[in-house]
Design a protein around this nucleic acid. Structure first.
Lengths: 349, 349
DNA sequence: CTGAAAGCGCTAACAT
DNA sequence: ATGTTAGCGCTTTCAG
């Protein structure tokens, strides 16, 4: 393959504008100490020649690569893709992250890493060495993986932790999961439900605990009993079935259920149908993911909508700011979730 | 932000192994003319120090950036993401493309470009200048955009065209769309249908024409009349409704319909329900996308499954080969689609 | 405010 | 089979 050189480099621009390389560089990087007329002249040449800096060269000398790495859970993502059930989380991250990156002249590079792997540090170090990203976005469960955050801290790379479970360095961004669970519980209680069941996610994801907390708090505030209304699942369809079976068993069964993700909500739907329970007449159901499929169930599911795109965009903004002037918000940034009302909720019989 | 240097460079490895930089470079690049013992010594140092080459530096001197650009239709992808209906095509491309890239030590960079934009050449040139990718994957409708292929040809960058409509340079990869449409039509005819309708996609996507061709050929082969059985849509739900209305009108209505994508299939489902037609008893339906949602309709849809992941993987393989030794397959590479039988097809009444 | 020089990490071309 | 030299395109010193 032919050795490919940059078509138009900073040299061409400098020659065309009749200035030194430095001046061009200063204009590109929006540095001060350039007279407006110089700047205009250089900019004219840049536009004329269609010059675009090579990020490889920029990375070589300077400190910016204009690359942001988004790390997602490998097994989970691949499994979702392979089953062709979509990966809404990934889509929304790309939507929010890529577009925001583009605004800043950055690129988002999407990477999969295995959180359970014993060579996770090696994998991550390799990705960083190869790409030299200006920042990293961590999604659950990576947000709380000390092996990952450790590498990032040591290398002094700005990183955002989405829905982190424990305090720590890095930019924390949450979606107010406990508040959202509380809101969903309140919504059901306001409809008249008192037997509101909750199917939780696994401890590995810290959002699981928060969502549970929100439900518990709302129930406690209203003085509602939670006995026999809680089941811990693992986000899988099968565990959702088990949860639904447990909560819909006996005379004192739940009349409403909040499932911590879409798969477990779908499973609950299936179990309810098997038991001859009509939704929403006999059972109200709220999903904790507003993924595409909850609009294709019968009835369509009322769901907590997580603003993943906005979170990703926020993460990009904050990472770029952190990379530029080292400013990191001291408190977690909150991008609150919303409740989307559809047809799976109604007052109890 | 602190200026971040490579933690461990080729120099460290060379010093540690007691050889020259070049020898290390040769080992990294698997070049010949290195004695096994040297190679082993160098490799030991690489492993010991955890050395990983900087792709920025590799790009600066050599001809490889280890980056492959995947170009998708901007408006369409963003629209799908925003409606949270998923973007199965994108997911599958990432699945196949990323994993295959990883095997080769490459990275896939996902980009959105607007095919209708008048500054598309500028956009693309900028992306290429910034990233210097070793190859580009073009998806419809970009595969046939002469502005895009022109830039790539001129810059001598290997590129794959997925489902290209017209011959041209670059690596062509098809999914045998006409064969798949023929297969779907035959499947329905074998069930006993003779009034098999077809809702086509827009001309902008060349697959639309091929799928239509396949249907027409199958119908002709069996001597079946196609009058009143064809409608051209634009892949949108609304156009699918129009198509279904047209094909299900009158006494001589279609008893089976093939929709060229999932949205139009869903629309057909809705129209059928409105008309009181049971599926599959009164109407058989085949979707031309096996996206997640077709498994959540009632009944689940029989669908043509397009092997997008395999196509993307194949594209990566071929691009890397082309970049390495300039070898480009002279005939289009075919990765055939399959028919997934579900519950939306049955013999006519 | 602007320019000249040095060097980032790596590989191609040319020695040896 | 191995080492040496000269850049790639850009930014960071450091001089003017």
């Amino acid at each position: 393959m032919a050795r490919r050189r940059q078509a138009v480099t900073i040299k061409h621009v400098a020659a065309d504008a009749g200035v030194s390389l430095q001046t061009v560089s200063r204009v590109i990087n929006k540095e001060p100490n350039v007279r407006p007329e110089m700047k205009a002249k250089v900019q004219a040449s840049i536009d004329k020649l269609g010059y675009v800096p090579s990020i490889a060269a920029q990375r070589m000398s300077g400190s910016r690569s204009y690359l942001i790495l988004a790390l997602n859970d490998r097994d989970r993502t691949i499994a979702d893709w392979k089953e062709r059930q979509g990966a809404d989380w990934v889509d929304q991250m790309l939507l929010g992250g890529m577009l925001k990156c583009a605004e800043h002249g950055y690129r988002l590079i999407f990477e999969l890493v295995d959180t359970h792997s014993d060579h996770i540090e090696r994998e991550l170090t390799a990705a960083i060495a190869a790409l030299q990203p200006d920042g990293v976005i961590l999604t659950p469960p990576h947000s709380d993986n000390p092996l990952i955050t450790g590498v990032l801290e040591k290398q002094d790379i700005p990183f955002a932790r989405i829905s982190p479970g424990v305090p720590g360095r890095g930019i924390a961004i949450t979606m107010n999961d406990d508040g959202a669970a509380e809101m969903a519980t309140d919504y059901l209680a306001d409809l008249g439900h008192s037997r509101i069941g909750f199917i939780a996610g696994p401890d590995e994801y810290s959002v699981s605990g928060w969502r549970t907390d929100g439900w518990e708090k709302a129930m406690a505030t209203r003085g509602l009993d939670t006995a026999g209304l809680f089941h811990k699942g693992d986000f899988s369809f099968e565990s959702g079935r088990e949860g639904a079976e447990a909560l819909l068993n006996g005379p004192n069964r739940a009349t409403a259920i909040i499932a911590s993700n879409d798969q477990m909500a779908l499973a609950t739907l299936e179990v309810a149908r098997e038991k001859g329970l009509a939704i929403p007449a006999d059972l109200s159901l709220i999903s904790f993911d507003n993924t595409p499929i909850v609009k294709f169930t019968h009835p369509q599911l009322t769901a907590v909508d997580q603003p993943i795109a906005q979170v990703a965009a926020k993460a990009v903004d904050l990472i770029i700011a952190a990379h530029r002037d080292g400013e990191v918000p001291d408190a977690p940034v909150v991008v609150p979730a919303d409740l989307v009302e559809r047809a799976s909720t109604a007052p109890p019989r």
